[in-house]
């Protein structure tokens, strides 16, 4: 459903474009949990921003349901694709319910009234992410883990086929991180949505994702964990020799020196 064709990602600049990665060809199907992995600064966020039309490709194109992303209007695209970003939210007195309700904006009328159907979607999103008890809490009083769930609920309420999350586990402890991954895995199974997530939690991502987008210096590889292991794809992501990929347990381990 989401496809790239000879995609080159990067930043358009006056003195020549800054190319991050080129010749990206991936085809993402529905109902999959997909992790974008790679070392710091390799371009994970750039790829996600390009896939979600926040940023324009340098060349090539991204297709959603066979149509180029930029052929969608802002409103049409907002019904297909929702986001969870890493950026800090401005401080306001929004409650959890109100914040999630903002996910219904693509469907609300000019004055932003919620229909009974909208409210049902919001309640369902809160149930799925297990935050119904936080309904009336102010969002800035939440813990990082709770806030992440609220933002995921907002994306669910937006009712899109694809949800893209940029490092949702960045500020979370191990327990919360696993919780978020398990939640996302559950959501993919229950709703048949496609969830694309970038993360530094490589070992966890390898265990729980259906497919991996692996970004290295000169290419992007795409496939199931098993397929990528058989291609020895993980051996070269990190430059130093302290970290090693152990094929038998399918995890990265610290090398004994």
């Amino acid at each position: 459903m989401l496809q790239t064709e000879d995609l080159t990602i990067g930043y358009a600049q006056k003195k020549g474009d800054k190319i991050v990665l080129s010749k990206i060809n991936i085809a993402i199907e529905s109902g999959k949990l997909i992790s974008v992995l790679g070392k710091n600064g390799i371009g994970k966020s750039t790829l996600l921003r390009t896939l979600s039309n926040v940023q324009k490709p340098i060349s090539g194109d991204v297709y959603f349901e066979e149509k180029s992303l930029h052929s969608y209007s802002e409103n049409a695209l907002s019904k297909k694709l929702s986001l969870v970003l890493t950026e800090r939210l401005p401080e306001s007195q929004l409650t959890v319910f109100e914040l999630i309700a903002l996910g219904r904006q693509p469907y609300t009328n000019w004055i932003d009234s919620l229909s009974a159907g909208d409210i049902e979607k919001i309640n369902a999103a809160m149930r799925q992410t297990e935050i119904t008890h936080l309904k009336n809490a102010l969002f800035y009083e939440l813990s990082d883990g709770q806030l992440q769930r609220v933002l995921i609920a907002r994306a669910l309420a937006q009712d899109t086929a694809v949800i893209i999350l940029d490092e949702p586990t960045a500020h979370l402890d191990m327990h919360q991180t696993i919780n978020i991954f398990v939640l996302l895995q559950k959501l993919v199974k229950e709703t048949n949505k496609t969830i694309i997530i970038s993360s530094h939690e490589i070992n966890l991502a390898l265990k729980l994702s259906d497919q991996i987008i692996l970004m290295t210096e000169n290419k992007v590889q795409f496939g199931t964990t098993a397929a990528l292991i058989s291609q020895s794809a993980f051996d070269t992501i990190f430059p130093d020799t302290l970290l090693q990929f152990d094929k038998t347990i399918e995890q990265f381990v610290i090398k004994n020196s």
Partner: peptide
Amino acid sequence: SIGVIKPLNSLLLGENYAKSAGIN
């Protein structure tokens, strides 16, 4: 100003979220 209530509410989460929720 009554006509921009919706984008104003949307902007409470910042421009990127507002844009992803279909606001021009």
